[in-house]
Computed example of a mutant assay.
Amino acid sequence: MNTFLYFITVLIWGTTWLAIAFQVGETPVPVSVGWRFALASIALFAILAFQRKLVPLSKENHKMAALLALCLFSNNFLCFYAATHYFPSGLIAVVFSLAPILNALNLWWLEKRTPNRTFMQGAVMGFVGVVLMFASQFFSAAMDMNILLGLGISLVGTYFFSMGNLVSAKAQQKAMPLLPTTAWAMGYGALYLFAISLIMGHSLTFSTDTLYVSALVYLAIIGSVVGFNTYLALVGRIGAPKAAYCTVLFPLVALSLSTVFEGYEWTWTSLIGVVLVVSGNLRVFGLPEPIKRWYLARQ
């Protein structure tokens, strides 16, 4: 079951980065993200009601749902959507793949789990890999602060996601119901984003362009309802650090799509950068269990 959840999550989230790029433009970012999670929340509540699994939550549950909303269903995506203004979506997925390293840093900071030498080696490899992925922009004559701004925004979004991992793991350790908590968290995230939109003076209407609407539905139903719940189920089953293995493979899917649809151009430095990012994560955490079992089965 863990293997199935793992690869479904990789496939879904590896494709959502391109769909995010299709949403950026006419509709303000907070409005786009808000409608994504509003639709996702409504769909998930409807599924739970149909299955008669819509249970009431305790005050503690709602607090956890609110924290998840801030980390996983609002602020992180405000950053990711905004970053697509500065570089291809596949590069954002590369930055996002540093989530396992940020998870370990958070455990060091919050739970005093001191990282070992292996972790430090992997963290350095991952950081150098990200720098190499952006090397062509760094050394370009057209380089400006926008690239650094986009990179910084992506890192902030990834950190929010990492904190959400820890919140979800804590919630599931307390036997909180996964799907109802997620449905409320998405709803809270949507309300938070709509409030931000109104404060900024944005209308809550969104583009009716076919590509935009298709991306919105895909992100709300497949990317959010299915993708997040398979991922959070993995967090509950195998823990946040191991579940974050999924992010190691996201860039390979996302960059492949970015090459075809966004014209991302590969260079030797970007290729070496991807290898270092993936290798750095694997250095920290080792090979994922599904890949280990697949390899041993072939021996």
Results as ranks from 00 to 15, higher is better:
residue 105 L to I: 15
residue 149 L to Q: 07
residue 11 L to A: 15
residue 223 G to M: 06
residue 154 S to C: 10
residue 10 V to A: 07
residue 121 Q to G: 07
residue 165 N to W: 05
residue 20 I to R: 07
residue 225 V to A: 09
residue 30 P to Q: 11
residue 100 P to T: 01
residue 2 N to M: 09
residue 237 R to V: 10
residue 149 L to I: 12
residue 88 P to M: 11
residue 249 L to C: 08
residue 297 A to R: 04
residue 176 M to L: 13
residue 269 T to D: 05
residue 241 P to E: 09
residue 238 I to M: 13
residue 135 A to D: 13
residue 268 W to N: 09
residue 263 G to T: 13
residue 129 G to F: 07
residue 119 F to K: 08
residue 130 V to F: 11
residue 178 L to Q: 08
residue 69 A to Q: 03
residue 212 Y to C: 07
residue 46 A to S: 10
residue 103 N to V: 14
residue 208 T to V: 14
residue 14 G to D: 03
residue 48 L to R: 06
residue 162 S to N: 08
residue 41 S to H: 00
residue 123 A to S: 10
residue 34 G to D: 08
residue 108 W to F: 05
residue 154 S to H: 02
residue 151 L to R: 01
residue 34 G to H: 04
residue 250 F to A: 00
residue 219 L to H: 08
residue 152 G to L: 04
residue 73 F to C: 04
residue 238 I to Q: 08
residue 100 P to N: 10
residue 286 G to C: 13
residue 76 N to D: 14
residue 258 S to C: 13
residue 127 F to T: 15
residue 54 L to H: 03
residue 272 I to V: 15
residue 186 M to P: 02
residue 97 S to N: 01
residue 166 L to K: 03
residue 185 A to T: 03
residue 58 S to A: 13
residue 256 S to C: 12
residue 277 V to D: 10
residue 218 Y to E: 10
residue 149 L to F: 11
residue 119 F to G: 02
residue 260 V to K: 06
residue 25 G to E: 06
residue 250 F to N: 07
residue 30 P to K: 12
residue 65 A to H: 03
residue 217 V to E: 06
residue 277 V to Y: 05
residue 124 V to K: 04
residue 266 W to S: 09
residue 96 F to Q: 05
residue 106 N to W: 14
residue 78 L to A: 04
residue 111 E to T: 00
residue 85 H to F: 12
residue 233 A to V: 00
residue 91 L to K: 08
residue 110 L to I: 01
residue 48 L to S: 06
residue 245 Y to G: 06
residue 198 L to T: 15
residue 73 F to K: 01
residue 252 L to R: 01
residue 78 L to M: 11
residue 228 F to T: 06
residue 139 F to I: 12
residue 285 F to T: 01
residue 231 Y to C: 02
residue 178 L to M: 09
residue 283 R to I: 12
residue 299 Q to C: 11
residue 250 F to M: 08
residue 228 F to I: 11
residue 40 A to C: 01
residue 66 A to T: 00
residue 31 V to H: 04
residue 171 A to K: 01
residue 108 W to V: 00
residue 86 Y to I: 04
residue 135 A to Y: 15
residue 112 K to A: 00
residue 126 G to F: 05
residue 71 C to V: 12
residue 51 Q to S: 14
residue 248 V to M: 11
residue 209 D to H: 12
residue 14 G to V: 13
residue 278 V to T: 14
residue 287 L to T: 15
residue 7 F to T: 00
residue 56 P to D: 09
residue 43 A to C: 12
residue 297 A to K: 07
residue 100 P to W: 00
residue 152 G to M: 02
residue 295 Y to R: 14
residue 288 P to I: 10
residue 17 W to S: 02
residue 295 Y to V: 13
residue 132 L to T: 01
residue 101 I to R: 05
residue 70 L to W: 09
